[in-house]
């Protein structure tokens, strides 16, 4: 296997960022001591290869808010007309330091926003996704909120990554998954190494077998949903932290009264207004209804439509929930019903 020394990582990042390419990497957030987020890397700044990021890597592909197009109302010869300016898609080039839970969520997002078989392409997502190299840090340790061992190959999953870095003494073993990864390990920054891959973390698990049908059977058991969502504040943090949640809102912003832009931003099915209709009718008026939809989308609806569970066990929703809601306890309560 190939090996890269810890102190060669900055040079790897410099190489990746050559030619003005954007490299997203885990970095301590501005004005923060211990909050680590994915952000575009700036030469000379440290990256956090040992920390958990508080939010997932999805912002590299779906920014919290993005402009879809600009518009202006123009007056020519007394006649008004509209001008539309579609946003030029940005390009990303490298996502460095994703975890397996981030990388495998990309497959779900790709299926929706950048489907291989054609259909609708989302230009913003497609621009950032095409040509993106994903360099993943494998996890040899985990914390009490991690539960990715519940899904597929767990911490050994390679889906979504181009290159996987396994932490070993003084550096990382590098395992290419795709051609882009193979090309990278041929760089001089990497040397051959006799070391074996380290033992990977073994996380907590939830049982997902049969969940898709079980959820439908229990859909009308409102007491269950009220009980499991009792602590939930409906704040939506879980959706924002999630690598696979992707729901969005669309809205217009004016600047002056002749021009403006149409934007989209992250949204959450936990918000009351998400499904509120103009008539005042809301199909999901209670937190229990909305939490049920969150669980249903991840473990029943998305699997029914796309064959994949829309949760990668990253545990961010558990670590960050201000009310202490734990999705694993919810799934266990459902499975025990």
């Amino acid at each position: 296997m190939r090996f890269i020394a810890e102190d060669a990582i900055p040079r790897l990042l410099e190489h990746l960022a050559g030619g003005g390419r954007t490299v997203w990497a885990p970095r301590v957030a501005r004005d923060s001591v211990n909050t680590v987020l994915f952000a575009p890397w700036i030469a000379g700044e440290p990256v956090e290869t040992g920390a958990y990021t508080h939010l997932s890597a999805k912002a590299t592909l779906l920014p919290p808010t993005e402009r879809l197009f600009g518009f202006s109302y123009l007056q020519t010869a007394g006649e008004e007309r509209i001008e539309l300016e579609p946003e030029e898609p940005e390009e990303n080039h490298v996502l460095f330091g994703a975890r397996v839970c981030d990388a495998r969520a990309l497959a779900a997002l790709d299926a929706l926003f950048f489907p291989a078989g054609g259909g609708f392409n989302d230009p913003g997502y497609a621009g950032r996704r095409s040509g993106l190299t994903v360099i993943t840090l494998a996890c040899t340790t985990c914390d009490s909120a991690c539960f990715c061992s519940s899904f597929g190959k767990g911490p050994a999953e390679t889906d979504g990554s181009d290159l996987i870095l396994y932490p070993v003494a003084n550096g990382f073993l590098a395992e290419p998954v795709t051609d882009a990864g193979s090309e990278l390990v041929r760089l001089d920054l990497f040397q051959d190494s006799p070391l074996d891959k380290p033992e990977l973390a073994v996380t907590d698990r939830i049982e997902t077998a049969g969940l898709r049908e079980k959820f439908i059977d229990l859909f009308s058991d409102i007491d269950l949903w009220r009980q499991v969502s009792e602590k939930c504040l409906s704040c939506g943090f879980c959706a924002y932290a999630c690598p696979a949640c992707h729901c969005f809102n669309i809205f217009d912003e004016m600047s002056g009264d002749r021009e403006g832009e149409r934007c989209r931003s992250w949204d959450s099915c936990m918000f009351y207004s998400y499904t509120l209709e103009t008539s005042g009718h809301n199909p999901r008026p209670e937190i229990a209804h909305r939490y049920r939809n969150r669980i249903g989308h991840k473990f029943s609806y998305f699997p029914a439509n796309r064959g994949e569970i829309l949760c990668t066990g990253c545990g961010r929703c558990i670590r960050g929930c201000p009310a202490g809601v734990d999705i694993r306890e919810v799934i266990r309560a459902v499975q025990e019903r």
Binding site: H246, F248, N249, D267, C269, T275, L276, P283, H297, N305
Partner: peptide
């Protein structure tokens, strides 16, 4: 059926009834 909609192309999430 009517539901609150935004994208209209099955991406934004809000108009689902079950799957």
């Amino acid at each position: 059926l009517e539901r609150r909609m935004k994208c209209g192309v099955g991406l934004c999430g809000r108009c689902n009834v079950g799957a």
